[in-house]
C-alpha cells in the first residue's frame, strides 16, 4: 500500500532523528579535543583516559560485572526451577506463585528499592555488594521465571508423558527432555537478567553500601557533579557493548528457534 507523501512518514523520520540525535552527538563529541561544547578537533584522548587513567571507573565496572553475572546465574537457576514446578506439578500455591512473580514487574522500581533498604536495615544486614546482589536476583527472578514458563507452556506436554511411558525416570525426563526444551527460555532469561542488572540504577541506588558502587551509579554521579568527556567515551563503549550484546542475543534466539 503506497500513497502520497504522508503525515505518518514525516512523523516517523522526525522520530528516528529525535531518537538517534543524542546518541549521535555522544559518539561525535567523544572524539572532541576540548572539554566544552564547541568542536576543537579530533582526538582520542578521552578514550586513552578511559582505559588508562580511570581506576575508580573500572572498579565500578568490576562491581557491575560481578553483580550482573552472579545475580543472573542465581536468578536463572531459581527461576527455571520455579517455572518447571509450575508447569510440571499441580499444587495449591500455584496461583500465589504466579502472582508473586508478577508483582516485581509492576511495582515501581523505587518502591522495590526502598522496601529492600528498610528490610535489610530491619534484619541488620549491612549494605554492601552482597545486598546489591540480593536485590538484583529479586528483580531478575520474575523475568527468567516468565520466559522459561512461556517456553514450557508453548511446548506439547505429551512429549513428557511419552518419555515417562517409554520408561524414562523422573531425573532422565528432567535432564533429557525438559531441560533441552526450555533451553531457549533459560538462555534468553539469563541474558535478559544480565542486561537488566547491568543497567539498573534506581534499586541499586538504595541498597548499595560503601565501596559497592556499580557502573550506572558511577556514571550518574559523574554526570550529576560536573561533566567529564571520559563519560562520553565510556557511553560510546557502552552503546557499542549493548548493541553487540542485544544483537547477538536476538540472532542466537532466532538460530535456536530455527533449529
Amino acid at each position: 500500500m503506497k500513497r502520497r507523501p504522508s503525515f505518518s512518514r514525516s512523523v516517523f523520520f522526525t522520530t528516528i532523528f529525535f531518537l538517534s540525535l543524542p546518541l549521535f552527538v555522544l559518539v561525535l563529541y567523544s572524539f572532541n579535543e576540548s572539554k566544552s561544547g564547541s568542536w576543537t578537533g579530533f582526538s582520542v584522548r578521552w578514550y586513552v583516559k578511559l582505559f588508562t587513567g580511570s581506576p575508580q571507573l573500572w572498579h565500578a565496572f568490576g562491581n557491575s560485572a560481578i553483580v550482573a553475572l552472579s545475580s543472573a546465574l542465581v536468578a536463572t537457576v531459581i527461576g527455571t526451577l520455579g517455572a518447571v514446578a509450575v508447569n510440571w506439578y499441580k499444587f495449591r500455591l500455584r496461583k500465589y506463585l504466579r502472582t508473586i512473580t508478577f508483582l516485581p514487574m509492576i511495582l515501581p522500581e523505587i518502591i522495590i528499592g526502598v522496601s529492600l533498604l528498610i528490610f535489610f536495615a530491619g534484619i541488620g544486614l549491612r549494605l554492601s555488594l552482597f545486598t546489591v546482589f540480593v536485590a538484583h536476583v529479586s528483580f531478575n527472578l520474575p523475568f527468567v521465571f516468565l520466559l522459561v514458563l512461556a517456553r514450557l507452556e508453548e511446548f506439547d506436554i505429551s512429549i513428557i508423558e511419552a518419555a515417562r511411558d517409554l520408561g524414562a525416570s523422573e531425573t532422565q525426563t528432567l535432564l533429557r527432555v525438559i531441560l533441552p526444551i526450555s533451553m531457549p527460555g533459560i538462555v534468553s532469561g539469563f541474558l535478559t537478567a544480565v542486561t537488566l542488572s547491568l543497567e539498573d540504577f534506581v534499586i541499586t541506588f538504595f541498597v548499595t553500601g560503601p565501596g559497592a558502587t556499580t557502573l550506572p551509579l558511577y556514571v550518574y554521579s559523574a554526570i550529576r557533579f560536573g561533566v567529564s568527556p571520559v563519560i562520553n567515551a565510556l557511553s560510546v563503549v557502552m552503546i557499542l557493548g549493548t548493541v553487540v550484546l542485544t544483537w547477538s542475543t536476538r540472532n542466537f534466539l532466532k538460530y535456536i528457534a530455527a533449529k
Binding site: V77, I78, G79, L81, G82, V84, A85, W88, Y89, F91, L93, L97, I100, T101, L103, P104, L107, I111, I112, V114, S115, L116, I118, F119, G122, V134, A135, V137, S138, L141, P142, F145
Partner: peptide, 22 residues
C-alpha cells in the same frame, strides 16, 4: 520441593515481606 521452595522463599521473603514491612 527442590523446584518450588527456592523461588517461593526468595520472592516471599524479599518482595512480599518487605512490602508488608513498608
Amino acid at each position: 520441593f527442590i523446584f518450588f521452595i527456592p523461588v517461593f522463599l526468595w520472592l516471599s521473603l524479599l518482595i512480599i515481606l518487605p512490602q508488608l514491612e513498608l
